[in-house]
Design a protein around this nucleic acid. Structure first.
Lengths: 199, 199
DNA sequence: CAGGGCATGTACCAATTGGTACACTCGCGA
DNA sequence: TCGCGAGTGTACCAATTGGTACATGCCCTG
């Protein structure tokens, strides 16, 4: 009685069709309602399938969670790669722009989910463990490349990239926890001043 | 048949005696085994009481969790206050020392728990919501005071303190996720160089 | 039109959960 | 000595969970 018309299986494209549509909806739901206490029934009811179907498509709750984590990660990475296409701004302006994108309120749910998943991953939860792999390294490479491109000694660039990543995440967490956008933005400005040379 | 001898109720001190002993054991257990999937039975079995008694002493699981969160918070605060007693080192050396204390492997469980609780608190989970209150502000004040004492303009000091807090947390998260102590330490050194003046 | 395979729903199951009822023990005060 | 109340364990309950069995319906191919 909702949008689940039996549209046949050839309507959509490449991958799993229905399956990938479900995982997308699931990520949205999880980003909005949290990862920890997810139940197949609750999720199913919210996105319009029975919990039976979730098991059918994903095999188990654990597998579904793993897929949610992967998709959420991919979304974040897409955000970054879309950003990299920018023209040649000054490094500090580029950072500022990236920061503004990351702190877009519409991404808040996604960011919360990120930290939530981190928390679980630190506990060694299987579905989320793979996150820890790319947690730093996947982001370090592009940031490091940017540093090196700006003329920084590669050895130092790695440390600077790691520092920048950590600071951004720390401030992001601050923002999510306090909602004090002005205060956090001011701290970020202070960081940019220190990081990219002064005013 | 274990360490729960009926030692009478006057053996220990002030507060709840048994109760506070239980909450201490509970925090240890949770720091080691995680917060998300805690069950009263599992916890009880681990610390040597029946889940019945946990309900008896704390009223409900939620109340117990709230108490665990509060105690864990208090422990962290105690760590900081014990640290403040140091003599007058240079700011950067003081920061280095604090950093070394925070990254003591023996605290890893506690730190993991901190981030885990953050994740849940961001979801508005009731027992953990109070954490968000003090999440930044409680730490900002002492850090800000230190900045001001070092001669920084109060307006800037707030931003610097906030930045320092965020960076420490970001790097701590990095350390917990990757275990790459050397890499994270190097990034921290880079930060200290930027933060407290150069080479 | 017939058959097969995929998608879906309903009903169900076993396990685990937080929480409760009741019984038992034990030490203290009258 | 006799309770009485606090501490504790055992057994139990209802709800929720992930997961399964079976039946149904639909579309596509023959």
């Amino acid at each position: 009685m909702d949008g689940s018309h039996p549209e046949g299986k050839a309507a959509l494209g490449a991958d799993g069709d229905r399956r990938s549509q479900l995982v997308d909806a699931a990520v949205d739901y999880v980003a909005a309602h949290g990862f920890a206490d997810l139940s197949l029934r609750g999720l199913g009811a919210a996105i319009g399938v029975s919990h039976r179907m979730l098991i059918h498509y994903f095999g188990s709750k654990e597998a579904l969670l793993a897929e949610i984590v992967r998709t959420s990660e991919r979304r974040q990475r897409d955000l970054l790669s879309r950003f990299r296409l920018e023209p040649g701004l000054s490094p500090s302006d580029a950072a500022r722009l990236l920061w503004r994108q990351l702190t877009d309120p519409r991404l808040a749910g996604q960011e919360r989910l990120f930290f939530e998943i981190c928390g679980h991953a630190l506990r060694g939860r299987a579905e989320t463990a793979l996150v820890l792999e790319g947690f730093v390294n996947d982001w370090l490479e592009p940031l490091m490349a940017a540093e090196v491109a700006a003329g920084v000694d590669p050895a130092v660039a790695r440390n600077r990239a790691r520092l920048g990543l950590a600071t951004v995440r720390g401030l992001l967490l601050d923002l999510l926890a306090t909602g004090d956008r002005a205060g956090v933005d001011a701290a970020m400005e202070e960081f940019l001043r220190l990081y990219y040379g002064s005013e």
